[in-house]
Every structure is written in structure tokens, then in C-alpha cells.
């Protein structure tokens, strides 16, 4: 418990303290004077607002795509597939997690490139690869975080008793109605749990966007640029508090729905 406190809270505390310092633009020395300049700068320059909203938008889109893709897969795994097929599918879902994140991101870079796999597949239909950019980033992130959505939903659906399906059917509901009125409400906490993973992971990502994002910027890349190249640690810390705040709001909102208690 103590270690958890040191590792997480002290790091967050240090982050917040740093964000209140200033930096000498020329020498890059951190000046330890208390100031809200970094936060003011975040607010005053519209570009940072655009980047923050873009990042939140992409994280939300990735979460929505993952939820839509994951639900049928998880439902099939939990309720339709035979135990053998189910085991194979769990392995298949877990397998991408064994491979390095970088390898997967670079694989997508190859696929999105000029004359890459997507171009080649799309060319008979007159379609083109979207090229490097936000669309490519969204697709890559959705791919990367899909297992984190499938597994919680799968675990949640497994706990739904089969008898409920039969009862619903006996009362005259079609399978679609059963899913909508019985399964979805019971799986909702699991979807929320998955969305916390996909949303927070997308919110903080900077590697995928540097690899397939073209010239696009997200919160992660701006933080990275400020730490690595501009050497402006205080400003990086200030911008890094934005995802923390967004996540806190998100968690608070989720708690209100009561989803967390049913986990």
C-alpha cells in the first residue's frame, strides 16, 4: 500500500508541482518560481485546445469502434462457441498482446504506405489507402486496444446465466430483443470497464501517432516534444495533467451510472 502511494501519488504530485514551474526559453534551465503561466498558455493558445479536443475525440472514436467490434466477438465467445473453439479464440485474442507494440504499429505503417497492402486490396474497387494521418491513427489504435475491450466484455458475458436467454426466449423475445433488453444491460459494466482501458490508453498514446499519424499531433506527441526536444518540462507537465483531469471526469461520470459497483 505504501509502495503504491509512493509510486503513483508521488509521481502525480511531482507532475503537478513541476507544472507550476517556469522555464528559461534560451538555456532551458527550469526556474523554480510558482506560476500558472503554463496553464494560462494552454488556455490562451487555441492550438492546444484543438489538440486536446482532437485527442479526446480520437480516444472516444477508438473506444466506440472497439466496443462495436468487441461485443459480437465476445458474445460469440461466451455464449455460442464450443469450449474448444472458445479456448482457441481466447488464445487468438491474447496472441497480439505477446507481440511488441512497436512491431504492430510499424506493420500498420507498412500497410498504410503508398502501394501497401491497403492500397493493393482497395485498388480493384477504386479505393486508396487513407495515407498517414488521423484516420490511420484511429484504425491502428483501435486494432492495438481491441483485446482490452474484448476480454472484459467476454468475462462479463460469461457471468450472464444461460437460463436468462431461455427465459427471455420463452417470454416471446427474439434474439435481437434478448440482446438489447437482457444482455446489453447486464454487460454494460463490462463495456464500461473495457472503455476505461481503451479510452485512457488512446488518450496517452504518442507512439502510434508518430508512426502512422503523419504530421498530426495529439496530447502525447506534444508532451513528448516538450520533454524531448523543447526541454520544457513544466509545460509538458501542465499539458499532461489534461488527460489526468479528463480521466477523473470520465471515472466520476462512470461511477454515477453505477457501473463500477457491478464489476
Amino acid at each position: 500500500m505504501l509502495w503504491l502511494g509512493v509510486a503513483y501519488l508521488a509521481a502525480l504530485g511531482a507532475l503537478f508541482v513541476t507544472s507550476l514551474w517556469a522555464q528559461n526559453d534560451f538555456t532551458g534551465e527550469i526556474e523554480r518560481v510558482w506560476t500558472f503561466d503554463n496553464f494560462r498558455q494552454l488556455w490562451d493558445f487555441p492550438v492546444y485546445r484543438t489538440i486536446a479536443f482532437r485527442t479526446i475525440g480520437i480516444a472516444a472514436l477508438v473506444t466506440a469502434i472497439d466496443a462495436l467490434l468487441a461485443f459480437p466477438i465476445a458474445l460469440y465467445m461466451a455464449k455460442v462457441a464450443s469450449p474448444r473453439v472458445r479456448r482457441l479464440m481466447v488464445i487468438a485474442v491474447l496472441m497480439p498482446l505477446w507481440a511488441s507494440y512497436l512491431v504492430k504499429a510499424y506493420a500498420w505503417r507498412g500497410m498504410f504506405s503508398e502501394g501497401g497492402l491497403i492500397d493493393w486490396l482497395g485498388s480493384p474497387f477504386g479505393l486508396h489507402s487513407p495515407g498517414y494521418g488521423l484516420a490511420a491513427t484511429t484504425i491502428t489504435l483501435a486494432y492495438l486496444w481491441l483485446p482490452y475491450m474484448i476480454l472484459p466484455i467476454f468475462a462479463g458475458l460469461e457471468r450472464v446465466p444461460d437460463s436468462l436467454f431461455e427465459a427471455s426466449g420463452d417470454l416471446g423475445a427474439g434474439s435481437f430483443t434478448t440482446i438489447r433488453r437482457v444482455v446489453l444491460p447486464m454487460a454494460f459494466p463490462a463495456v464500461v470497464a473495457g472503455s476505461i482501458f481503451t479510452f485512457s490508453l488512446s488518450l496517452g498514446d504518442y507512439i502510434a501517432v508518430t508512426i502512422v499519424g503523419g504530421a498530426g499531433q495529439l496530447i502525447g506527441t506534444v508532451v513528448y516534444a516538450n520533454v524531448g526536444s523543447a526541454n520544457n518540462l513544466p509545460f509538458a507537465a501542465a499539458f499532461a495533467t489534461v488527460p489526468v483531469v479528463v480521466m477523473l471526469i470520465y471515472l466520476a461520470a462512470v461511477r454515477r451510472t453505477g457501473a463500477l459497483e457491478n464489476l
Binding site: 509512493v6 501519488l9 504530485g13 538555456t27 523554480r32
Partner: peptide, 21 residues
């Protein structure tokens, strides 16, 4: 207290290079 100790340690660690500014 722990958080503030950690923060202070951070200040001290970085403080040594700031004297020449």
C-alpha cells in the same frame, strides 16, 4: 507528507544545476 518529501527531494536534486543562471 510523503508526497511533499518526494517533491522536496526532486527540488533538491535539480537545484544544484540552477545556480549559474
Amino acid at each position: 507528507a510523503l508526497v511533499s518529501v518526494a517533491a522536496l527531494a526532486l527540488v533538491a536534486a535539480c537545484g544544484s544545476s540552477g545556480s549559474s543562471g
